[in-house]
Design a protein around this nucleic acid. Structure first.
Lengths: 231, 231
DNA sequence: CCGATAAGATTGTCGGACAATCGTTCAGGC
DNA sequence: GCCTGAACGATTGTCCGACAATCTTATCGG
């Protein structure tokens, strides 16, 4: 705990929690209590609460009134809902990014080479990491911060499930083939083709995730009425 | 005070702030201090801070570290970014909602009649309200809570600008004509037509908003803060 | 075995306190 | 006179302790 406090306390806590989720020390569905982290990280309850709320907004945690927060675990229905939104936004990202990527495709083709190499080596962790970079490249090249942030939030919610799928060797060839399809359409300046290929890729990811056993998902539940602020 | 506290303190504060923004008592760009509302609403600073964070996540307020929060004011670039995302998501809402609205179109056609009536009467406030209901009908019929919440958040950020545009009589005929176009496509079960009409409607709204004078927008973000712009 | 009740745990809210940071003001140096 | 910079006030960030409200769990009685 001898951090040089260059960032704010809340950021430190939030980063620690994010790391714990990413490394799997905290698994989806697991309940987190405030007191647990005030003690472990040596910060006040206020900071822990603030970090909880921030990560909840980021899609990494889920909060229920008077019941605390847990590592977010999606139901199958929520996965479908998320992929509908994700598909629309990733397609938009392709449309916005394509002109820029077409004139300067070096980053994309390099990334594609790395993906191919990772597949050849059977290095699933690296492939998973590069897969994230692939999608990030599109949403950042789109130069729309709102779009990028929204997609990042969706990705955060999916992190665990996506990881479960991507480490499976049996799907990696097909998945990477779809990547290559998108890349080739971008190089060929084929917008419709790139969009379609990306949508097919997203739909494929959805199906792979939905093929996971039930114990990876939250039980189907009624939607929690969040906020109704219009009249 | 004399409220029967059926909801939580934070919700009460958040609702009060939302109402203040909607009625125009708080205008975009205005800075809000915590102490101001602890005193006025008789709640603790914790609750005010929490309410600020919640409304920031909802897109109604904007926060900057160590500088507090203000009523969110978009720059022209942010408006464009928002409308790109909004277009993609409203189009998705149309696609998802169309089958359901086609078999049970009564709510939609009633709403369209009300819109037409509001136009005939020149009742701009009512038209603005019904316009919100029109879009809300699609995103709620889509039965995708994530999509609905995301679109609601975008709408919150736009509320003020949209209101400025909608109260202007000179655009209401064209705007409502586009509504009717969407409605007719839905009744005719023409998905592509409905999507296209909705996208045209959204793009039209963007242009109307961008035609507002500069003082409705936040200054464009720039990293170099050396200029002296005093008034 | 099941339901009702009591005890415990956890969150929601409060009030105060202090440090860190930002914006402004004002004095001094060029 | 204008710019630089130090002091100041205002505001946010963080911590602490306390209590009420609510949820969870354990216990008891039918």
């Amino acid at each position: 705990m001898e951090d040089t406090d260059s960032r704010s306390t809340v950021e430190t806590v939030a980063d620690a929690l994010t790391e714990a989720v990413r490394t799997g020390r905290l698994v989806p569905g697991q309940r987190l209590t405030e007191s647990e982290f005030t003690a472990r990280l040596g910060v006040s309850r206020s900071s822990v609460r603030e970090a909880f709320r921030r990560l909840t907004a980021d899609g990494l945690l889920a909060a229920e009134p008077h019941r605390g927060v847990m590592v977010r675990q999606l139901s199958r229905a929520e996965v479908d809902n998320l992929f509908q939104v994700r598909g629309a936004l990733e397609a938009l990202a392709v449309t916005l990014a394509l002109p820029k990527l077409h004139v300067a495709p070096s980053a994309l083709v390099t990334l594609q080479s790395d993906l191919d190499a990772a597949v050849d080596e059977g290095n699933m962790n690296r492939f998973s990491q590069l897969n994230g970079q692939f999608h990030r490249l599109f949403r950042e090249t789109a130069e729309n911060p709102l779009l990028s942030d929204t997609l990042t939030r969706l990705s955060n919610s999916l992190y665990w499930l996506q990881f479960r799928v991507l480490v499976d060797r049996s799907h990696v060839f097909e998945t990477n083939r779809q990547h290559r399809e998108v890349t080739e359409c971008v190089v060929a300046n084929d917008e419709d083709g790139a969009r379609t290929a990306m949508l097919r890729h997203i739909e494929n990811a959805r199906k792979l995730i939905q093929s996971l056993p039930d114990d990876h998902f939250a039980p189907p539940k009624q939607h929690i009425g969040k906020n109704a602020s219009m009249a």
